[in-house]
Design a binder for these strands. Sequence first.
DNA 1: AAAAAAC
Length: 702
Amino acid sequence: MTQHHHDDRPADAPVKKPRHKKFQTQSYGERMAAQAEAAGPSTGEVRDDTARGERRGGPSQYSDRGVRGYANDRRDNRPVKGYRAAEPRTDRRPANRDDRPQYNRDERPQYNRDDRPQYNRDERPQYGDRARTDRGERNQYGDRPQNNRNDRNDRNDRPQYDRGDRPSFNRDERPQYDRTERPQYRRDDRPRFERDERPRVDRDERPRFDRDERPRYDRAGDRQSSYQRRDRDDRSSYQQNKRVEEPVDLGTVAADNQFAALGLAPRLVQRLARDGITSPFPIQTATIPDALAGKDVLGRGQTGSGKTLGFGLPTLTRLAGGKTESRRPRGMILVPTRELAMQVHDALEPLAHVMNVSLKLIAGGLPYPKQIESLRRGVDLLIATPGRLIDLCEQGAADLGAVEIAVLDEADHMCDMGFMPAVTTLLDMTPAEGQRLLFSATLDNDVDTIVKTYLKDPVQHSTESGQASVSTMEHHMLVIEPGHKQSLTAELASRDGRTIVFVRTKLGADRVATQLRDRGVMAAALHGGLTQGMRNRTLDQFKDGSVPVLVATDVAARGIHVDDVGLVVQADPPAEHKDYLHRAGRTARAGGKGAVVTLVLPHQRRGMMRMAESAGVKAEPVRARPGDELVTELTGGSKPSGYPVKLPAPKPQRFNKGGGKRFGSSRPGRGHDGRGGSGPRRSNGPRRTDGNRYEGGKSYQH
DNA sequence: AAAAAAC
């Protein structure tokens, strides 16, 4: 049956919203409004509530129509307001209902079903059968719909409907639809569905709850984004208040395991060791002991150096064993984007599990009910984006009064102008004596305000200089002509392997992604203007390889980890040096290799050089044109095909939140043939009809 | 200055 993607909807479920003034005197919205007012008169759009309200309140179209449209249906003779009363009719007797013979049902011959020969299915003429199409001749029922239809649109005359020419619609040739070849869909092959053979029926005796250990059927074929899965199995709340009595054997830990030496719980160390994580990164070695000791910590470690575990492990250790009341979580990790929240959640979940710490993702774009329910049952640790958490606090669904540990991931970003009010709102709700951990790759003086207000005797650990010190990363700065930007971007992105292209604006992301696809490079846009369902889908496709090029705004600049991103292209230069470092940090993670290419227009050159210096990036600006040797070197020589390609999944219908059927997340890489034309297609804007896609010279900067 | 973050 059709899958209903309830999850893609914005949570519109009825949510009662008693506003608890307990935590603050102003609501978040009021605060923001006040802030906006303080910032001066808005030059942007003005909400036109008045106009809308007037139209609604007055003689609306709806009520108007209710009277006019159905005036004839009125059973009484009261004059309709606004209409001239009809002249009394004299040409016939007033109808006496009972006397009207034609209303006797049984005598109406044409409704005798058995007399209608053409309802015999087998004998109905087929489409294209002209014998049936005597133009204009009515059948005995007085209608002739099929005649004209067939005359005009005889299917056999329409070449484009010839089934044989549409390979993609030929069911037999679509390999992925061959049921017998999809082992993961065969029930018999799924070992854990053999009821009789399941050794453990007693839930408490199940030796392990760990996700990773469970035999899996292949979920990749499941075509659900991680976001949808996440919402479906709400394991964290299910687990609530169940404490494992006996330690589970998680494997042995080597005597020289250095995590153990840091003072972490043995179970945690064992769990890490099972994933092959036995030696801590420098940032972890530096911060974990202090964090475990309950100190406030400022942690700075280069991108991809394991900061998540740096604050995650001590947080879990300290929360373990405690008791959490309903709606009163004891730990809170704030992150700047929803994707990052999901990533942190997923990274900590197995670890939280062995520690019997429950955790819940609290982020916008996801349905409210499960988040509220989870909080009601009591959840130890929240991983949250600020807006939704404030919302839930205002509703009374969450109470931060019991938060023992508050973590700010990407702390410097959380302290910039846009985020600061929300973050202080949340921190204000937490007890002043609670522990605070601030982490970022670029932890600088921007956090001073927060540090002074909310941290007590913080310990600062900087394992790196806060500059570009990832030695496995190479930087290139290409000074280009504006007219070459599109083709150079396409050349760079057409390489094998994953590439992220950063642009400045949401619109730019959409535009560049489209341009790349027009040139034959499979690319998808990621930015905050998309529905959350689409954001998840796009990131999933980037991760599974079906879309190797991600065109993103700075929503993806921080924290997001995808394996093997070999190249970061900055099609628009970053706004400041910290952004450079974070964008660049999407590649060369955890010791891997990677390159960063920044496209610089002549007028941006000076600023870019300054920025590079602040970032500690050593790169000489080099003039470059499409086809240059340097570009070829960076891309391994592959060129864009020039033939437009289409995304493997239907594009998001922004207005239709359902999402619909999705194909493609399991479709291999760039295998799409890229021909245009057939199939039901969403059109998301005007389709290009001009032939010169490439040499227009329109630059998408600016 | 844009993006992000609630509905």
